[in-house]
Computed example of a mutant assay.
Amino acid sequence: MDKLIDRGEAKAIVHNGLWKQNAGIVQILGMCPVLVMSNNIINGVSLGLATSLVMLISGMAVAAIRRFVPNELRTPIFILIIAALVTMVDLAMNAYVHGLYVVLGIFIPLITTNCIVLARAEAFASKNGVLQSGLDGLFMGLGLTGVLAVLGAMRELVGQGTLLSSIDLLFGPQAKDWVIHVIPADAHYQFLLAMLPPGAFIGLGFLVAGKLALDRRAEARAKAAPPQPASETATV
């Protein structure tokens, strides 16, 4: 029987998914949707959340059946589970956010073949409990969503001087007033390089470099910090 997840284990899984093993800037997986759909915040976050939902449920499903699946059939069965979940997400988005569904296009069905989803099913969910696998899938997906959000914000801001430019695809025409124009709309500003795939490569390079710099700074601070004295406890 699968054990319950303790606080320390949960904290390690969350840290791995969001930072230490971030799929977008550490493992560098799933680059096709990251580079194409990160042209603004809304597109990137929407695709990231859809991927997170699939990873959450597929991780739990794979963990639940892992003892009953023959080793030689693991990959096709895992892909079948993922494909069924992606189909549900695809139909739901088509029904409730059709405008966004049209924009994301083929990248919703392609979640099925996203190496991030199958990699976590193989590397983690097939070896761990249901709760651990669900948490791992969720935060691996949210780590990727964070990369898509930051990269989308960078490209949208530099490329057209706005933030949240497609928010009406989620909340209807009235949400057009929610768009933040950092550069006035009447300036007709556009920097095409940032909106094209080369801009995505450049932006992702800055994110990878930024994470490496922060990790090195944290490591240097840890080495420079004086050792903590052992706490003394009085006994009676």
Rank of each mutant, 00 (worst) to 15 (best):
V54Q: 11
L4M: 11
P70G: 05
K3I: 01
E122P: 01
R217K: 11
A218F: 15
V62H: 06
A149Y: 03
Y101G: 00
L214A: 15
K11V: 14
T233W: 15
V97K: 13
A92V: 11
L148I: 00
M1V: 09
M195H: 12
I25G: 06
A213R: 09
W178T: 01
L4G: 11
G59I: 03
L212E: 07
G30V: 00
D215L: 09
E9G: 15
A121H: 09
I81A: 02
R66P: 03
T87K: 09
G199Q: 10
N16W: 01
G141K: 10
A194Q: 10
L73C: 04
K176Y: 03
C115S: 12
A200D: 04
I108E: 09
H181V: 00
P198H: 07
R7N: 11
L85Y: 10
I5E: 08
K11F: 14
N43V: 00
L142K: 03
M93E: 07
L49D: 00
S52T: 11
L110Y: 12
E219Y: 12
Q21N: 05
F124I: 14
V158D: 06
L29W: 13
S126G: 01
H188C: 02
H98E: 11
A23K: 08
L163D: 01
L91P: 00
S38L: 04
D2Y: 14
R7K: 08
L142S: 04
A92Q: 04
V14L: 14
P173Y: 08
F139K: 10
L131E: 08
E122M: 13
P70W: 14
N40G: 05
S133L: 10
N40A: 05
L214K: 02
L148E: 10
D6P: 06
M93P: 07
D2V: 01
K223A: 13
L135I: 14
G59P: 08
H98S: 13
Y189D: 01
A125Q: 02
D2K: 05
D215C: 08
V147C: 09
G143S: 03
P33M: 03
Q27V: 00
H181N: 10
G99D: 15
L204Q: 05
F191L: 14
L85Q: 05
T235C: 14
L18N: 08
R74Q: 09
N71Q: 09
R221S: 12
L169C: 02
N40L: 10
I79P: 02
L118C: 04
V179F: 12
S126W: 15
D136R: 09
I167F: 14
P227Q: 14
A95F: 10
W19I: 13
V103E: 15
A153M: 13
L104V: 01
N71W: 12
P184K: 07
G137P: 05
V179R: 12
I183E: 06
V236T: 07
L164N: 10
V130L: 15
P226M: 08
R120Y: 13
F68D: 00
M60D: 00
F171T: 00
G129S: 09
G30Y: 07
P197M: 09
S52E: 04
A149N: 04
L157V: 01
Y96Q: 06
L85E: 03
A119T: 06
V208Q: 03
T233H: 15
G8F: 13
L49R: 02
D186N: 14
V103I: 10
K223G: 02
A23E: 12
V86E: 01
V36A: 15
F191P: 02
M195I: 02
V54E: 06
